[in-house]
Design a protein around this nucleic acid. Sequence first.
DNA 1: GACTATAGCGGACTACGGTCCGCTTGTGTC
DNA 2: GACACAAGCGGACCGTAGTCCGCTATAGTC
Lengths: 198, 198
Amino acid sequence: MSAAPTQERERADARRNRERILCATARLVERVGIDCFSMDDVAAEAGVGKGTLYRRFGDKSSLIRALISEPEQAFQESLIRGEAPLGPGAAPAERLHAFGDGLLAFLDRHVIYMQSAERFGAVDRYRHPVYAFYRTHVALLLRQAIGDAASTDYLVDALLGPLGPEPFAYQRDARGMSLDEIRAGWHTLCDAVLASSR
Amino acid sequence: MSAAPTQERERADARRNRERILCATARLVERVGIDCFSMDDVAAEAGVGKGTLYRRFGDKSSLIRALISEPEQAFQESLIRGEAPLGPGAAPAERLHAFGDGLLAFLDRHVIYMQSAERFGAVDRYRHPVYAFYRTHVALLLRQAIGDAASTDYLVDALLGPLGPEPFAYQRDARGMSLDEIRAGWHTLCDAVLASSR
DNA sequence: GACTATAGCGGACTACGGTCCGCTTGTGTC
DNA sequence: GACACAAGCGGACCGTAGTCCGCTATAGTC
């Protein structure tokens, strides 16, 4: 429970309250489930005022995302500096497949948080900085793999589409697909796209 | 402004109020823009109580969707009974392309409503009956075109993904793509998927 | 240790979506 | 036309996300 100081200097009470809030939120999620607690509940559980909550986390969406910020940042880190095939060193096509596997594994664990955060979020998934990050990554790999065609940019979004929280949750929970089936499906899609410009 | 009686018998005052509400909503949307009015505003503008609003439309999402229910139903109708290539009579692959064009044209006109409805909706896009309808349609065409493989079902979702309100709005408004560029991109994706199993 | 500027705090307040329930009005029956 | 009854109505009410601003605690300075 730390979720990045981010600032150059953090006052002691601020730090204490940030941790309190994150712990309280995690406790509430475990006790009553995600989506079954209000921001007032969090404030009460943490023993802070609502103003403090919003000063630190902006909105409910950010608070929920903060709960999974560590694994999310770790995944992003491993894309840039991790070991091949997720990180640099492998062939672009191979890295692309590894990226899909990695993101699907991440979703399989954290999708409830992602969905909840999205429900309360002011910006949709596509406008979120994290999407821009993934987009850049996939665009680079795709261009390396199949070169630069008019529709390459579009195909990036097409590949990222099924890796969003809603489609994933739909496939897994509503359609009852296993993680392996979803993975296999995405690899088929990925191969189709990779083959399209060759 | 009618949006389907749906029931076997509708009382006169109920009908009158339904029309009032729909007209008032349309007027508000035009005056202040979508998302800039509350349900209280609608009730006041229509001259009815809030209870009436919710009795007829369930929630804000449904109210907004009701505004575009006529063109939406017309589009669905043309998929089933319309002229080829959108309706029956053309080759599956051709119908698939026509479906994408048609849905993108629909989105281009109504995406603001779709997004707003989704923001307030209790169920996400994938759980909405309309998605199930499109899904069945595309699944049928895809199976006719490339046969039944393990991942065919997944590819249906992959094809429908970029035809959602959020990705469309992102591509058009945030990325500045023209409708033609988006169309071309989807056709590329569609062709890639169609070629994948041949 | 006293002083000060300010980052941080807290909770009353607002706006909004949605519910509830007693009252009204339309409709079908005689 | 009178009656009964149910479909429909309306607005007070509730819970929740998010704001605002006067007050407090902290961290540097001397």
